[in-house]
Design a protein around this nucleic acid. Structure first.
Length: 670
DNA sequence: GTAGGGTTAG
């Protein structure tokens, strides 16, 4: 009975997998058992005791399981406690370290293991080459040369290692030298050539392949797309015939190309390809696979429409789908969120059968973008599971719509709930610090940035903006200098703007010169700051010259803000007529900043006629504002023109204008 | 337990 059970068990586990394990390594604990009755060794070719073997098989699987779910320490503890190990146990453990690129630990086990097979060597090589870089590739090559016996996998690992590190010559040398190539070797070379931009040779190798499989076509199509050869990819795909004439399931490759067209905005091309995929094909091919549209094809096509902003076609296709998955719903929602009309997004959201965190995040970020902060918080609180993106969306929304306290409160709450901020969170909070000009908060966030993320240019830009707006110009400049060649136009703008708004006009202009020296193309924001600096420093000629150069030298169209600055510059200098002419020559309607600049200048130069012109225009633009009335009234009063002053007062009363109480911003303190 | 390729959302 027992024998029968054993035999059945062995049948189920396939005897050959049991016998091919070879020699067992017996640890101290197990060897005690072994000397008593030997359960660990095979006698002849048939296992005498399959319980030990099956349990070893199960134990090895346990190691793999721990590794798969990312619990490497648990895997190691289990491995260390195993009574009996074979080469597979060691290899499994090594593969765990290799996957995590912990090559020192992997190497230690490899050096310690009592008996290595070809897989042990291959694992180590694969680990070294996937770490990348010359040193590791060399280490891999060294093992490759040392190993007693190589199989196809060893060669392929080394070839793809070279290919992925841009060392195509070395890869091809090995490919030429290898004794038996299989389809994987060919695929590795083809995709390697494509990754290194050698399209011609890739196609040549593809055509020379003695056999192909599904991966061959996928590699070629995706590689061609990466090399911007969309037409080539389409040709390959449409003309593709397998060597033995058998039909293959090409849907994957088709989907790849549809997505490629979508990336380039070629929606019509994508649609043509989508329409070529059979809708339903009942004749099964040799591989027992159907070539027909799958849910990914539909999703990808919908995605193309969404990216092109064509929600009508996206919706049409979505409605035709027989089987939708969460992805389909989320893509549609993201499309509606992207074009901001939220009602349709919300409709879909309420109808969808299974929502995941992304669905919720999409709604939250949609309401954040449209500034509906009430609904943001409503959705956020109802989320069954919050991800980092959820927190970031809400914080970004609060920041954008200037609910700075809300943003900070949420930032504190997220940390108390154990969610760690990333660079997105930190840049939002840096913008909050800038918004409320809280240098103290900004400095704390700076410390957090240093501790938790590797600062990239965007976050450094946010730091420069924060420090320069808060008046800590030196700190801003230090970060600006540390950026070295990674300075972007935003970095320059932030720094120039900081100087300009704190009265460091010459520094602002100096930096503007330097920016031109480095051939960084200024934007309209650069010119706003530079003109601002000229106005503060009374640099009339410089201001006029820079204003003219905007269009002629840099092709930047002046906006109403630039005109307002120039009006300010010439007006402050006392050239009020020129300022008025400038306003009249503007290609667009002057706004309150423009008239405000003229009014301010008129007041400084005590030109009451001009002040009256500007004030009347301001009264038309902002009928409820008391500022122009008050300014004009005070000017008349100062000159002793009491009748005129009384007139203004009368106008104020007739128009029901209240003098606004002075308000100041008070630090709410956190 | 090891080698090649692969489509979709924030």
């Amino acid at each position: 009975m027992i024998l029968l059970t054993c035999w059945k068990m062995m049948r189920r586990l396939k005897i050959d997998t049991l016998t091919k394990f070879g020699t067992f390594e017996v640890s101290r604990r197990a060897s005690e058992v072994a000397t008593l009755g030997s359960h660990c060794f095979f006698s002849g070719s048939r296992p005498r005791n399959s319980f030990r073997d099956t349990s070893l098989l199960a134990e090895n699987k346990k190691i793999s399981h721990f590794i798969r779910i990312g619990q490497i320490n648990e895997a190691r503890a289990f491995f260390d406690n195993m009574g009996c190990r074979n080469t597979v146990s060691w290899n499994s453990m090594i593969s765990g370290y290799v996957k995590r690129r912990e090559m020192t630990k992997a190497r230690k086990l490899f050096d310690e293991m009592p008996e290595r097979d070809v897989v042990s060597w291959n694992l180590m090589i694969s680990g070294y080459v996937s770490c990348g870089g010359n040193r590791f590739i060399e280490e891999g090559r060294c093992l490759f040369e040392m190993m007693p016996k190589r199989d196809c996998v060893s060669w392929n690992t080394m070839i793809s290692g070279y290919a992925k590190n841009g060392m195509m010559d070395q890869a091809l040398l090995l490919f030429d030298r290898m004794p038996h190539r299989n389809v994987v070797s060919w695929n590795a070379v083809v995709s390697g050539l494509l990754q290194n931009g050698d399209v011609m040779r890739a196609i040549e190798f593809f055509n020379r392949m003695p056999e192909r499989d599904a991966a061959s076509l996928s590699a070629l199509v995706s590689g061609l797309i990466q090399n911007e050869e969309l037409d080539g990819a389409a040709r390959v795909l449409l003309e593709y015939k397998n060597k033995d004439g058998a039909k293959e399931n090409l849907v994957h490759a088709y989907n790849t190309l549809i997505a490629g067209y979508g990336q380039k905005g070629l929606v019509d091309e994508a649609r043509k390809l989508f329409d070529r995929i059979p809708f339903r094909n009942d004749e099964r091919d040799k591989n027992n696979e159907r070539f027909e549209r799958n849910v990914v094809s539909w999703n990808t096509m919908i995605m193309c429409y969404v990216k092109a902003g064509d929600m009508v076609s996206a919706q049409e296709l979505f409605e035709q789908m027989i089987e939708r998955d969460t992805f389909s719903w989320n893509t549609m929602i993201s499309g509606y969120v992207h074009v901001l009309d939220m009602e349709k997004a919300s409709n879909l959201f309420s109808k969808m059968p299974n929502r995941d965190t992304l669905s919720w995040n999409l709604m939250v970020s949609g309401y954040s973008l449209t500034g509906n902060l009430e609904l943001v918080s409503d959705f956020f609180e109802k989320m069954p599971e919050k991800s980092l993106v959820s927190w970031n969306s809400v914080i970004a929304g609060y920041e954008k719509y200037e609910d700075f306290n809300g943003a900070i409160e949420l930032f504190l709450r997220m940390q108390s709930e154990g969610e760690k901020p990333d660079r997105h969170t930190l840049s939002s909070i840096l913008s909050v610090s800038t918004g409320i000009m809280d240098l103290n908060l900004g400095m704390q966030i700076h410390q957090l940035v240093t501790k938790t993320v590797i600062p990239d240019t965007p976050i450094n830009n946010a730091l420069i903006t924060m420090y320069s707006r808060c008046g800590a110009i030196l700190e801003a400049r230090t970060i600006f200098e540390e950026l070295k060649l990674k300075k972007e136009v935003i970095s320059w703008n932030a720094m120039i703007g900081g100087y300009a708004s704190h009265g460091y006009a010459s520094e602002a202009l100096e930096l503007f010169k330097l920016m031109r020296h480095f051939e960084v193309q200024p934007t309209y924001i650069t010119f706003i700051s530079v003109l601002h600096a000229c106005a503060h420093a009374g640099l009339v000629e410089e201001g006029r010259r820079i204003f003219k150069s905007m269009q002629s030298e840099y092709g930047v169209e002046p906006t109403v803000e630039h005109f307002a600055s120039l009006v300010d510059i010439v007006g402050r200098h006392g050239q009020l007529e020129e300022a008025l002419d400038l306003i009249k020559s503007m290609p667009f309607e002057p706004d309150k900043a423009v008239w405000g600049a003229l009014l301010g200048a008129s007041r400084v130069h005590n030109n009451v006629e001009m002040a009256r012109v500007a004030a009347e225009e301001l009264m038309k633009l902002e009928p409820e504002s008391s500022t122009p009335y008050v300014l004009l009234h005070n000017m008349y009063a100062n000159m002793g023109c009491w009748d005129d002053a009384a007139d203004i007062r009368g106008m104020m009363e007739r128009n029901n204008i209240q003098k606004q109480t002075a308000r100041s911003w008070i630090d709410s303190g956190y």
